[in-house]
Amino acid sequence: MSVGPYNYSYIFKYIIIGDMGVGKSCLLHQFTEKKFMSDCPHTIGVEFGTRIIEVSGQKIKLQIWDTAGQERFRAVTRSYYRGAAGALMVYDITRRSTYNHLSSWLTDTRNLTNPSTVIFLIGNKCDLNAARDVTYEEAKQFADENGLMFVEASAKSGENVEEAFLETAKKIYQSIQDGRLDLNAAESGVQHKPSQPGGRNTLVNDQTASKDSCSC
């Protein structure tokens, strides 16, 4: 039996959110390209990136939507929370204001996503420890209180970047295993690639039946 054309079994949809300039796009770039982008332009609306990872022997394709932090794009970015399986919420450890806005980001996330959406808090720029404005303990406490996963990372050095994306995927995968995440539900943020029992396949079958009879 030949190996199927898909070299992965699932697609997980992620969204990256947080204030302007906290390094969302850099985190994505570091994760997908393993490189640091030193002069990253402001994101316009949303950008898109993918990478295939492996969790418990399963190949998983991450579809990552990187949103603009600028307020004027909120109207656009808010629409992308819908059906995200994982949300990476980023702040900048050297700028307290970006940390202070977390609760508003969290509220948005909770309001606009599924309850099963895994929210991962990332304190970015941990390479700039000297300029630190938010302590690890404080952020950790905030994460614990809100049931978020948390790590301090650096898009520049690459520290913990991989971990944040992978841990999120593991948690999502676990939710699937535990049955907390229903793959057949539309917009769960997860697509199961090989032979979906329900889902999109079922949409296809009857519609084209009429066309078949006249196919030449």
Partner: peptide
């Protein structure tokens, strides 16, 4: 192929 192309999501058919 024409009648099966809609099943691109099932692994075997897809292959």
């Amino acid at each position: 192929t024409q009648s099966h192309c809609r099943s691109v999501e099932s692994t075997e058919t897809a292959a």
